[in-house]
Amino acid sequence: MHRDRSGSHMRCVTDHAGGGIQSPVGPPGATAARQAAQAWRRQFAADASHELRTPVAGLRVELEEALMHPEQTDLRELVTRALKSVNRLESIVSDLLTLARVQAVKTEECEDFDLSELVGREVLRRSDRLPVRLQLMSGVIVRAVPLQIVRVLTALLDNAQQHATYGVRVEVDDDDGHAELVVIDDGEGVAEADRERIFEQFTRTDSARSRDRGGSGLGLAIAREIALAHRGSLDVRETASGGACFTLRLPSWPDRGGKAAGLGQDAGERPPARPR
C-alpha cells in the first residue's frame, strides 16, 4: 500500500511474473471505460484497415496483370479503373481525418447563423437527380461551425437522393428551444433494427443506408459525431408512408423573431409525387 502526498491511499498491482509494478489501479468505472475505449479504438483501426486494404488490393491486381501481360492491356481502361480505386482511397482517408477532427468543437470556430439561410443556400448549389422541396422557418439561429453543419446536410441529402423514389423534402423548424433540420425521402425506409447501426463506422446493412454507393461508408457516422460535438443529436425514424426521416437537433440560439418562410419552395422542377 502506498500513500500519495495528500495522504490518500493509492493501490498498486504487483506483476508477479516480472517482479515489476504496474500503473496504479483507478476506480472500477474508470477502468471499464478505459477498456471500452481501447476496444473501440482497436475495432475502428481494424475496420479502417480493412476498408483501405480493399481498394489497394484491387489496384495491385490491376497493375500486376498489366505488368505481366502488357500486350493485352488497354492502357486507357487500366488507368480509368486505377483512378476509381485511388478516388475511393482518397474518400476514405479524407473521411477518417474528418472523423478525427469533429469530435471536439472549438468555441472560436463557432458562429451564429440562420440555419434556414444556410440550408436554402446549400440546397440550391446542388444538382440532384430528384427535386428537393424546402419548408424553412426563418430566424432559427444556431451557434455552430457552419462547414460542419453543411457536412451533415450533405450526408443526409446524398443519402436521401440515393434512396428516394420521387423526391426529397427538407424542413427547418424550432421546437422547444432546439433547432431541427429534417430530411425526408420517400424510399424504402430504415428497418428498426438498423436505426442505430447505420450511424456506426463502416456498418453495412441490407438496405446499404450506411454506405453511399462509391463512398467511404462514413458519411452518417461523421454526421452523428458532428451532431454530438455540437451538443445535439441525429436520429432516424420511419414516416407514415414508410420512407426515412432523419432529424438533426441542435440547441437554438436566443429567439430572434422567427417566422415561417419559404413554404412549398422547390429546388427542383417538380415536387415529390408523394408528399407527407
Rank of each mutant, 00 (worst) to 15 (best):
L63E: 00
S49F: 04
E90W: 03
M1A: 05
T247H: 04
L83D: 10
E200G: 14
A17F: 13
T73I: 00
V61Q: 05
L250D: 11
I21C: 03
F44I: 13
G20M: 14
H230D: 01
L99C: 01
H2K: 11
R224K: 04
R3T: 14
G219I: 02
A82N: 11
T154S: 15
P275L: 10
L96P: 00
L75W: 02
G243D: 02
V102M: 01
T154W: 01
G264Y: 03
A267M: 04
E200M: 14
E111H: 08
Q135W: 07
G18K: 08
R195K: 13
D15F: 05
D175H: 13
L248P: 06
D4Q: 06
T247S: 08
V183Q: 06
R76H: 09
L63M: 02
C245I: 11
H50E: 12
I184L: 01
L78S: 04
L181D: 01
N159P: 08
A179C: 06
T107W: 02
E64M: 00
S91E: 15
R213W: 01
R121H: 15
L234H: 06
M68S: 00
L181H: 02
V56F: 05
L63S: 00
D174W: 03
S49P: 05
R195T: 09
D266I: 14
E90L: 11
K84G: 15
R126A: 10
A37D: 10
F246A: 06
A267G: 09
D74Q: 04
R121T: 13
T239N: 05
E122V: 12
R211L: 14
E238M: 15
R213F: 04
G242L: 00
T31V: 10
V86G: 08
L59R: 04
D194A: 08
G262Q: 09
A208D: 14
R211D: 12
L78H: 09
L134E: 02
T80C: 10
P275N: 09
D185C: 06
V172H: 02
E90H: 12
E117Y: 03
L250V: 10
R125D: 08
R88P: 09
L89H: 02
D255Q: 10
Q135Y: 09
A100Y: 00
A240P: 03
N159H: 08
L83I: 11
S85E: 12
R11F: 13
V150F: 00
P27W: 10
Q135F: 08
R60F: 06
L97R: 10
R133W: 13
A244P: 07
R81K: 12
E71D: 00
E51K: 05
G19F: 02
K106T: 11
E108K: 05
Q162M: 10
R88E: 14
L67A: 10
E122Y: 11
L153N: 02
Q162N: 07
R11T: 15
G257T: 07
A17S: 14
E192P: 09
D95K: 06
L75C: 01
Q201C: 07
R274K: 14
L153M: 01
S23D: 11
R270H: 06
P272Y: 05
K106G: 05
A193L: 04
R133L: 15
D4A: 03
A240K: 10
A240F: 10
Q135H: 13
D235C: 04
A223L: 03
S6I: 06
I149Q: 08
E188K: 13
A39N: 12
A30N: 12
